[in-house]
């Protein structure tokens, strides 16, 4: 352990703090937090720069560009900029900021990065299908008592536990 590292917060305290941020978001905005939509927008903006026609004619992604407004000028994008800055602030002040690849003892860097990419693809796909990810659906919708979000949250845990034995080598 890095000698400058400081302990994490008690998970319940961190959760309660996160809950207060979410509550503040609801009180200010009337909607909650999210993240995958912002990442999607970055992807769409990039793809739109390369192949504008393909995106504009796409039945699903076309909706991101049809308004004519800049694709990245969106609440969620600025929120995720904040998430990055908040994460940086937290990691640096906690002494946990260091360049590296977070992996288990039995997997190489290449393997780990490959799995990170593959898992990311699955998540990006699933988040579009479910209209949100763990932040936008499970956390935010869950706090708003939306039934679909609770169902989604249990499905996430189910999916995680179902696949965990298969990728055990990666982590343990």
């Amino acid at each position: 352990m890095n000698p400058q590292e400081r302990p994490l917060w008690n998970p319940y305290v961190a959760g309660a703090f996160l809950g207060l941020v979410l509550l503040a978001t609801y009180l200010l905005m009337g909607f909650g937090l999210g993240s995958s939509a912002a990442v999607t927008r970055v992807a769409v903006a990039g793809a739109h720069a390369v192949a504008p026609a393909a995106i504009e004619n796409n039945g699903y992604l076309g909706a991101y560009v049809s308004s004519g407004a800049p694709i990245l000028e969106d609440w969620m994008v600025f929120e995720v900029i904040g998430v990055f800055l908040g994460g940086l602030l937290g990691a640096y002040t906690g002494g946990r900021l260091k360049k590296g690849v977070d992996r288990g003892p039995r997997i190489g860097v290449g393997g780990r990065l490959g799995l990170a990419l593959a898992g990311g693809v699955l998540m990006g796909f699933a988040a579009r299908l479910a209209r949100g990810c763990t932040s936008g659906q499970a956390l935010t919708g869950g706090a708003a008592l939306a039934v679909g979000s609770w169902v989604f949250m249990f499905a996430v845990f189910a999916g995680g536990y179902a696949l965990a034995p298969l990728v055990r080598r990666q982590w343990r």
């Binding site: 977070d102 799995l115 990170a116 990419l117 593959a118 898992g119 990311g120 693809v121 699955l122 998540m123 990006g124 796909f125 699933a126 988040a127 579009r128 299908l129 479910a130 209209r131 990810c133 763990t134 659906q137 499970a138 169902v151 989604f152 949250m153 249990f154 499905a155 996430v156 845990f157 189910a158 999916g159 995680g160 536990y161 179902a162 696949l163 965990a164 990728v167 990666q170 982590w171």
Partner: peptide, 13 residues
């Protein structure tokens, strides 16, 4: 979607 996202979660971490 939730199930697939959960699977992606454990694969990517």
């Amino acid at each position: 979607g939730g199930f697939v996202l959960g699977a992606g979660f454990i694969v990517s971490g």
